[in-house]
Every structure is written in structure tokens, then in C-alpha cells.
Amino acid sequence: METSVHGREIRKDNPVLRRILRVIIWILLIALAVFTLIPFFWMISSSLKLDREVFAFPMRWIPETYHWENYSLIWERVPLLTYFKNTAFIAVMVTLLQTLTSSFAAYAFAKLNFRGRDVLFLCYIGTIAVPWQAYMLPQFIMMRSMGLYDTLWAMVVLQAFSAFGVFLMRQFYRSIPTELCEAARLDGLSEYGIWARIMLPLSKAAIATLVIFTFVNTWNDYMGPMIYLTRDMNKTIQVGLRRFIQQYSSDYHLIMAASLCSLVPVSVVFLCLQRYFIEGIATSGLKG
């Protein structure tokens, strides 16, 4: 009896209370969003200033005059274009190879019966648990003796065959009913045909997740290129930017302009495909 009275009371003053609460939450969220984005605002504002204005007191969020020429200057000072090209090459190659080979392998793990399947899969899973930093040294020594040191291909082969991709795709393929494959087999489709005509079209969402994961991770990778790429002509945008920072350490405005440029490609990809990215994380819960 009492509980129902309580319930009615709560329901009665709910509309007003709820509206107030909602407004408070909105204000809070906007404040937090501004806080989260402050570094990016500061980056934009500083990139349009003169170097001595960046740390002026009191600081100005909006520059007195906009120095757009900063953005043309950086392309002359550092081979940014080369860095961009290298990074794009690595990111695209890794993404392509990774998606193709791992969806291929995942099909075997998810839908085919063969000897040694569980042992092989265990090998894959096992290496996910091993941090890369624990085996990067033997890997480095091996790659060096293979003559891959300081080549872009080193970065490609290092990341193109990760266990993570196989695992992600296999989990998805397992959710596709096996009856579909069996029906196709009865219709005379080969296994390759089933993969190409049934599994691939059905796994668009998973592939989108894998593509954007791989692309963002390779684009932002720092330690790998740091170890493997030493010649300037081979550097990726991350290590190139780092070199630029060390060389022109007091040209704050130019550093900010170059940093902002390095953010653009990955931001565009993220904003276009963010649904897949965020949903992919929510369902797989795995870190790339």
C-alpha cells in the first residue's frame, strides 16, 4: 500500500523534476565537452598566432590577427608531404592485407573442420595476451637480419597479420548460421565461393570495424616507426612530427599547425565511420 503511494508521488512531480534534472545534465555535459576539447581549441588558436604570442599573458583564445601563412610555412620547413605519403602507404597496405587475410583465415576457423584447428587458434589467442613490447626485440633482430630495417615494408608486415583481426572476424563469422554455408555447399558453391558470395557481404559491419580500427591504429602508431624508421624519407607523420618538434622546439605556432595537420586525416575517417568504431568497441570490448 505504502509503496504504491510512494510510486504515485514520484510519478506526480516527475515532469518538473525531470526537466530540471535534464537541464542540469545538459549544462554539465556541455561544460565537460568544452573541457575535453580545450586542447584542440588551444591548438587551433596557437597555430594561427606568432610564436611570441603563444605564451603571452594574459592569453587570448582568439588571435589578434590570423597568421594563415603558418600553414604554408610548415610544408616548406619539413617534408610533411613525404611523411603523409609514407603513413598513408603503411596504413592502407596494413588495412588491406589485414582485412583480406584475416577474414580469409577467420572463415576457416569459424566454419571449417580440420585437424589442428583448436591448437592453431590457441596460438593466435595466446599471442594476443602477450604484449608486443615483450617480443619486439627478437622481432627487431629478426627483421634486421632479413634486411627489412628502415623500410616501409617492415611496418606493413609487422602489423598486417595480427591475431586481433582474425579473432574479431572469427567471432563475427560464428554468429552467421552454419545452415547458410551448408545450403550453399549443396548448391555446388565451393568454399571460396561461400566466403566471397555469402560471408563477405554479410560481414560488412565487422569489416568496417576492423578497417577503421586498423587504420586509426597504424596512423597513430608511434613506437613501431620510432624503432624501425630512421631515414627521413621513410618517416611516418608521427615520428616526423616528433623530429620537427625537436628541431624547431621554440616555434610553438608552427608545431601546433603541423600537429593539427597530422590530426586531419584520422579525424575525417573517424567522423565518417564513428558508428562502426564505437559499436565495434562496445561489442568486442577489445583494444586494438
Binding site: 575535453t36 576539447l37 586542447p39 584542440f40 588551444w42 591548438m43 586509426v216 596512423w219 597513430n220 608511434y222 607523420i237 608521427q238 615520428v239 612530427l241 616528433r242 618538434i245 608545431i255 601546433m256 600537429s259 593539427l260 597530422s262 590530426l263 584520422v266 579525424s267 573517424f270 564513428q274 568504431f277 564505437i278
Partner: peptide
């Protein structure tokens, strides 16, 4: 979510 995808070097130096 945006900070998570933005590149390390850029945000760290910022």
C-alpha cells in the same frame, strides 16, 4: 571519444 583517436604526438605536445 575524440581524444582517443587523435594522434599521440599532436595531443601530447599540445
Amino acid at each position: 571519444f575524440f581524444p582517443y583517436v587523435s594522434s599521440m604526438v599532436a595531443i601530447c605536445v599540445c
